[in-house]
Lab assay of single mutants.
Amino acid sequence: PEDEKKAKEALKRANGDEDKAKEILRKLGVDPDRAEELLRRLR
């Protein structure tokens, strides 16, 4: 869904750096736990 698209985009923008991607997602208003879960799934 929408969050998943955001997560993929964030990872791309962060050049695969998960911590940076998490930060980006947090700024986009995605719940930190949700962000973590999404990134884990994309790994």
Rank of each mutant, 00 (worst) to 15 (best):
P1A: 14
P1T: 14
P1E: 15
P1W: 15
P1H: 14
P1L: 15
E2W: 12
E2H: 09
E2N: 11
E2A: 11
E2R: 07
E2S: 14
D3A: 08
D3H: 05
D3R: 03
D3V: 07
D3E: 12
D3N: 05
E4C: 06
E4G: 05
E4L: 15
E4T: 10
E4Y: 15
E4H: 09
E4Q: 08
E4V: 13
E4D: 08
K5F: 13
K5G: 08
K5W: 15
K5D: 12
K5L: 14
K5S: 10
K6L: 15
K6A: 14
K6M: 15
K6Q: 14
K6D: 07
K6I: 15
K6H: 12
K6W: 15
K6S: 09
A7Q: 02
A7K: 01
A7F: 05
A7S: 03
A7E: 01
A7V: 12
A7W: 04
A7D: 01
K8H: 09
K8Q: 10
K8L: 14
K8G: 05
E9A: 11
E9F: 11
E9D: 11
E9Y: 14
E9L: 12
A10N: 01
A10D: 01
A10R: 00
A10V: 04
A10H: 01
L11N: 02
L11F: 06
L11Q: 02
L11D: 01
L11A: 02
L11E: 01
L11S: 02
L11H: 03
K12A: 12
K12L: 14
K12H: 11
K12F: 12
R13H: 11
R13F: 12
R13G: 06
R13P: 01
R13K: 13
R13E: 15
A14D: 00
A14I: 02
A14M: 03
A14H: 03
A14L: 01
N15L: 09
N15Y: 08
N15V: 04
G16R: 03
G16H: 05
G16K: 03
G16M: 05
G16L: 03
G16D: 04
G16V: 02
G16N: 06
G16Y: 09
D17S: 06
D17V: 05
D17F: 04
D17C: 04
D17L: 04
D17I: 04
D17K: 04
D17M: 04
E18P: 11
E18D: 06
E18F: 15
E18W: 15
E18L: 14
E18V: 14
E18K: 10
D19C: 04
D19V: 14
D19G: 11
D19T: 13
D19S: 12
K20L: 14
K20V: 14
K20S: 06
K20T: 09
K20W: 09
A21Q: 02
A21K: 01
A21G: 02
A21C: 02
A21W: 02
A21T: 03
A21Y: 04
A21E: 01
K22V: 08
K22P: 00
K22T: 05
K22S: 05
K22I: 11
K22R: 13
E23T: 06
E23Q: 08
E23I: 08
E23N: 06
E23G: 06
E23R: 07
E23F: 04
E23H: 06
I24H: 04
I24T: 04
I24E: 08
I24C: 03
I24G: 02
I24F: 09
I24M: 08
I24Q: 04
I24A: 06
I24S: 03
L25H: 00
L25I: 02
L25G: 00
L25A: 01
L25C: 00
L25W: 01
R26Y: 13
R26P: 01
R26V: 15
R26C: 07
R26H: 12
R26M: 15
K27L: 15
K27A: 15
K27Y: 10
K27C: 07
L28Y: 08
L28M: 14
L28D: 08
L28R: 04
L28F: 07
G29N: 04
G29H: 03
G29K: 03
G29S: 03
V30H: 03
V30F: 15
V30R: 01
V30A: 02
D31V: 05
D31Q: 09
D31K: 09
D31S: 13
P32V: 08
P32E: 12
P32A: 12
P32M: 11
P32R: 09
D33V: 13
D33H: 12
D33L: 13
D33A: 14
D33K: 13
D33E: 13
R34V: 14
R34H: 10
R34W: 13
R34M: 11
R34G: 03
R34N: 06
R34P: 01
R34A: 10
A35L: 07
A35E: 01
A35P: 00
A35S: 05
A35Y: 05
A35G: 04
A35T: 04
E36L: 07
E36P: 01
E36R: 06
E36D: 13
E36G: 06
E36V: 08
E36A: 11
E36F: 05
E36Y: 05
E37N: 05
E37Q: 09
E37H: 06
E37L: 09
E37R: 05
E37S: 06
E37W: 06
E37K: 06
L38V: 05
L38N: 01
L38I: 10
L38T: 03
L38H: 02
L39Q: 00
L39R: 00
L39K: 00
L39F: 08
R40L: 09
R40F: 08
R41H: 11
R41Y: 11
R41G: 12
R41A: 14
R41L: 14
L42D: 02
L42M: 06
L42T: 03
L42Y: 06
L42P: 02
L42W: 05
L42K: 02
L42R: 02
L42I: 12
R43L: 14
R43P: 04
R43W: 07
R43I: 12
R43V: 10
R43S: 08
